[in-house]
Amino acid sequence: MRKLLAAALVFVFLGTGVSHAHQPVILLDSDTSAEKGPLLVDGTVSFAIRASFTKAGQKKAFRAQLKEGDALNFQFLIMDKKPENALKMTQLPNLVVTGPGGFKTTMKLNERTKFFESYTQTTYLYLGRYSSVAKSGVYSFLLTSRGKAAITLGVGNKEIPGEVTRGAAPMVSASAAPVAPATASAKPSASASAPATTAGYTMAQVKVNDNIKTCWAVVDDYVYDLTKWINSHPGGAGAIVSLCGTDATSAFKTQHQNQAKPAVRLDSYKLGPLQK
């Protein structure tokens, strides 16, 4: 399992009168089950799980690990802007949470409480909240869409850096260099040029570079070395680290569709085309 350190505390939720900083984790299109999705190693640490859907019937999931007696806390949120705030509750994704000892609950969306998140200058709506005492083990969170929508799940309440693991890709050691394409002789970097061949980079090479030391990702069939963007990303390191070794097309477009500045910044890290 590769380890992802979500180091930036970037979401401050003020709806309850107590500030909670939530580290961002973006659910990918490939996270269709809890086993395939990310694992929050400590489910009491604050995370903002972001998920977007384009049609009904899509599934995205993740897991959170808790100890006996820990607080099991999560909230269902949307941005207070169209089209999200114009959707009826019945049009938003369904959330089912299962856990140890036969635990199972379906999230009830029964409020529309506004709050202003000062870090990103964004107004959100709380639609539902849940709190109970956890049993020791792993809890699974499964979202099933009912149509096009983008939502955020707030999980945990400890304002400390948290660890996330994802997938079964091999871990690259801290001293290892990124895997170069077969036709390239130089070590790739954020400023490296595209490989000489039109074949480009393989997805297998991208998956190996899946950590904070060598972070590669695919966006729109091009491979990017995002390593140097991790600590300079305005939205926090965790948002980039969660994309390392993946096809991040959907995640990037969800956050930065039609935004020129992020697109220009991304282009500066281009390595070359993804080999088909």
Score class of each variant (00 low, 15 high):
residue 9 L to G: 09
residue 16 T to D: 01
residue 20 H to E: 10
residue 21 A to R: 07
residue 24 P to H: 03
residue 25 V to K: 01
residue 26 I to W: 13
residue 31 D to T: 00
residue 33 S to H: 00
residue 34 A to Q: 04
residue 41 V to N: 10
residue 47 F to A: 02
residue 48 A to T: 06
residue 49 I to D: 03
residue 52 S to T: 14
residue 54 T to Y: 12
residue 55 K to Y: 05
residue 57 G to Q: 03
residue 62 F to T: 01
residue 66 L to P: 09
residue 67 K to S: 06
residue 68 E to R: 12
residue 71 A to F: 05
residue 72 L to C: 03
residue 74 F to M: 09
residue 74 F to S: 12
residue 76 F to L: 05
residue 81 K to Y: 11
residue 87 L to C: 04
residue 91 Q to E: 15
residue 94 N to V: 15
residue 95 L to S: 00
residue 95 L to F: 06
residue 95 L to W: 07
residue 99 G to I: 01
residue 102 G to R: 03
residue 103 F to P: 09
residue 103 F to T: 01
residue 106 T to Q: 03
residue 108 K to D: 08
residue 110 N to G: 06
residue 114 K to A: 03
residue 114 K to Q: 05
residue 115 F to W: 08
residue 116 F to Y: 11
residue 120 T to M: 12
residue 122 T to A: 01
residue 127 L to S: 02
residue 127 L to I: 07
residue 129 R to V: 13
residue 130 Y to D: 09
residue 132 S to E: 14
residue 138 V to W: 03
residue 143 L to H: 08
residue 147 G to H: 12
residue 149 A to S: 10
residue 161 P to I: 05
residue 165 T to Q: 13
residue 167 G to N: 03
residue 171 M to A: 13
residue 172 V to P: 14
residue 177 A to H: 10
residue 180 A to R: 07
residue 182 A to M: 04
residue 184 A to Y: 08
residue 185 S to G: 08
residue 190 A to L: 09
residue 196 A to K: 13
residue 197 T to S: 15
residue 197 T to L: 09
residue 198 T to K: 13
residue 202 T to A: 04
residue 209 N to P: 04
residue 213 K to Q: 12
residue 219 V to P: 00
residue 224 Y to N: 00
residue 225 D to R: 00
residue 225 D to E: 01
residue 226 L to A: 00
residue 229 W to R: 14
residue 230 I to R: 00
residue 231 N to M: 07
residue 232 S to K: 14
residue 232 S to T: 11
residue 240 I to W: 03
residue 245 G to K: 04
residue 246 T to W: 10
residue 250 S to G: 14
residue 252 F to V: 02
residue 254 T to N: 15
residue 256 H to P: 04
residue 258 N to Y: 15
residue 258 N to S: 14
residue 258 N to R: 12
residue 260 A to I: 12
residue 272 G to S: 04
residue 274 L to Y: 07
residue 275 Q to S: 11
